[in-house]
């Protein structure tokens, strides 16, 4: 279907973009990669009055790593740039992996990691592990910049804390402390290239065989990517034996609140939550040891 008619704006600076966003008001949408926005428009679900493209704003691009401050992923950094960036691969392997698992080659060459978060699909590949790692959204608005941890960022399917007039400028991922490891696990019916039916991100801190800290985030089993806090409490202070991992899986599947939709049934999603939580904890613990 042809796209609806809209005004196209391509500011060169963040200030200009914020000003345009304020001026144009309701019905104005931001365009980073466009891979979600254009699909919605093509299917007639969205008819924006104006579209503000962010690609020309140099300050929003790029990926920066600082061993002290962590990783900054700019709003227009492509999924492929995240997946193939040497620093991301070296220091944040699960972030690179999740980006690599998002959609297909072409979409990763157009779509952005920030856009994947702003689209706020419950199944967003990049949300669980970033949330587990304590990443935060850097948001610019008329009143300046604010930072929101990702576990408070999502409000519902397609909804985030970003207010009208605000722009997500970057995602900040803190340095993974020594003794910590991460993992991203997902399952989908087509096997290799697919939207996740269930996904799990985990970060654990290990002291020998004992898990001293754990953050577990479940995707596609609730309206937003959700922390499995009871599961985190269950594994904290325990050795991650096969029995504990199985218990943790059961606990996570109890915490999950999935629906049945065309991608999977609720029962299957619960079961996969258990399987993937166990696998994620195991892999994260192994990563912590290395």
């Amino acid at each position: 279907m042809p796209l609806p008619k809209f005004e196209y704006l391509s500011p060169k600076s963040l200030e200009e973009a914020l000003q345009l966003l304020a001026d144009r008001g309701e019905g104005t949408h931001l365009l980073a990669g466009g891979t979600d926005l254009l699909v919605k428009m093509a299917h007639g679900h969205l008819k924006p009055r104006a579209v503000i493209a962010l690609k020309q704003i140099d300050a929003l691009g790029g990926i920066r790593f600082d061993p002290g401050k962590g990783l900054f992923i700019g709003a227009t950094a492509l999924l492929d740039e995240v997946a193939s960036h040497p620093d991301v691969k070296a220091h944040f392997p699960s972030v690179a992996y999740a980006a690599q698992q998002t959609a297909n080659v072409q979409i990763r060459n157009m779509g952005t990691l920030a856009g994947n978060l702003c689209n706020a699909a419950p199944s967003a590949d990049n949300a669980p592990v970033l949330t587990a790692m304590g990443a935060e959204a850097v948001i610019a608005g008329p009143k300046g910049e604010r930072r929101v941890a990702l576990d408070r960022f999502f409000k519902g399917p397609g909804q985030t804390v970003i207010e009208p007039g605000e722009i997500l400028t970057a995602v900040h991922v803190p340095v993974i402390p020594s003794g910590f490891g991460t993992s991203y696990q997902h399952v989908s019916p087509r096997g290799k290239v697919d939207i996740a039916a269930v996904c799990v991100g985990a970060m654990v801190g290990m002291d020998g065989a004992t898990c001293k800290e754990a953050r577990i985030v479940l995707g596609a089993v609730a309206p937003v990517p959700m922390r499995a806090e009871k599961t985190e409490a269950l594994v904290r202070g325990k050795a991650l034996t096969p029995e504990i991992l199985e218990k943790a899986g059961r606990q996570a599947s109890e915490e999950a609140r999935p629906i049945s939709d065309m991608r999977a049934g609720a029962e299957y999603r619960k079961r996969m939550t258990a399987v993937l939580t166990g696998r994620a904890l195991k892999q994260a613990a192994e990563a912590a040891a290395n």
């Binding site: 019916p189 087509r190 290799k192 697919d194 939207i195 065309m262 991608r263």
Partner: peptide
């Protein structure tokens, strides 16, 4: 969502 097998 109509899941045709890919090259993989």
């Amino acid at each position: 969502d109509y899941k045709m097998p890919t090259a993989l």
